Simulated scan of single mutants.
Amino acid sequence: MMQITFLSFDGTSYTVDADEGMTAMEAAINNGIDGIEGDCGGNCNCATCHVFVDPKWSEQVGEASPMEEALLASRSDLAENSRLACQIDLVPELDGLVLQMPESQFI
C-alpha cells in the first residue's frame, strides 16, 4: 500500500491509499476524488485525468509518451509538468507522490 496526494485547484488536499500497480487515475477514481474523470477508462484517449506533477516528483514520474503528449497538447492549460494520471503507473518509488489538479478538467 502506498499514499498519493491530490491537490484540488482550490488548495484542498486529498491523501489516498493506493495499491502498487494501479495508475494514479485509478487511485483517484477508487477514492472518489472530484476532478479526475477518466472518461476513456484509462486508455489514453480523452485527457480528462490531466494533472500537474509536483516538481519534486518529476524525475521519478518520468516523461510523457508521444501519444500522451499529443493528447495533452489539446489542453488549454498545458504546462511543463502536465501528465495524464492514467499514464502514471504507481510503483514503490512513487509512494508519497503529489499531483495537482487543474482548475477544470473540461477542455
Rank of each mutant, 00 (worst) to 15 (best):
A70S: 12
W57H: 02
S76M: 11
Q100V: 14
G11K: 14
I36F: 10
N31W: 04
V91Y: 02
L72N: 02
G21W: 10
P102A: 06
A85R: 02
C40E: 02
L84I: 00
D54R: 04
S58H: 13
P66Y: 06
Q105G: 10
S8W: 11
A28W: 01
S76T: 10
E68W: 06
D89N: 11
D17H: 06
T12K: 14
G42C: 08
L72W: 10
D17T: 05
G32S: 11
D89A: 10
A85I: 07
K56G: 04
R83S: 03
F52Q: 02
S74L: 15
M25L: 03
L72P: 05
C49I: 06
L78G: 05
E69G: 05
L97M: 10
T15M: 04
S76W: 12
T23Q: 01
Q60F: 06
R83A: 05
H50T: 12
L99V: 10
I29T: 10
D17W: 05
Q105H: 12
A64T: 13
E26N: 05
D39W: 00
D54L: 09
S13V: 15
E20T: 14
S58D: 11
Q100C: 13
S104F: 11
C46F: 11
K56Y: 14
G21N: 04
L94N: 03
S74I: 09
D10M: 06
P102T: 14
Q60H: 07
S104I: 15
Y14S: 11
I33L: 08
N81R: 13
V61F: 01
D34E: 09
G42L: 11
L78E: 01
C44D: 04
P55V: 06
E59A: 14
A27T: 07
K56H: 13
E93Y: 05
A47I: 00
V16Q: 00
E20C: 11
A79L: 13
S104V: 15
C86N: 00
D89R: 11
D19E: 13
L72H: 09
S74A: 14
P92E: 05
G42V: 04
M22D: 00
A47S: 09
D54F: 09
D39G: 08
E93R: 08
F6Y: 15
A79Y: 09
G11T: 01
D17C: 00
M67A: 14
P66K: 08
E20M: 13
E68R: 07
G41A: 09
N43F: 12
S104Q: 09
I88G: 02
V51C: 03
C44M: 12
I88T: 01
E26S: 06
G96L: 09
G21A: 14
A24N: 05
E26Y: 02
S82W: 11
G35N: 03
G35M: 05
M22N: 01
E80F: 15
C49V: 01
D95L: 08
L72I: 14
C46V: 07
N31D: 04
G38C: 03
P102N: 07
I33D: 01
Q105P: 02
A27I: 00
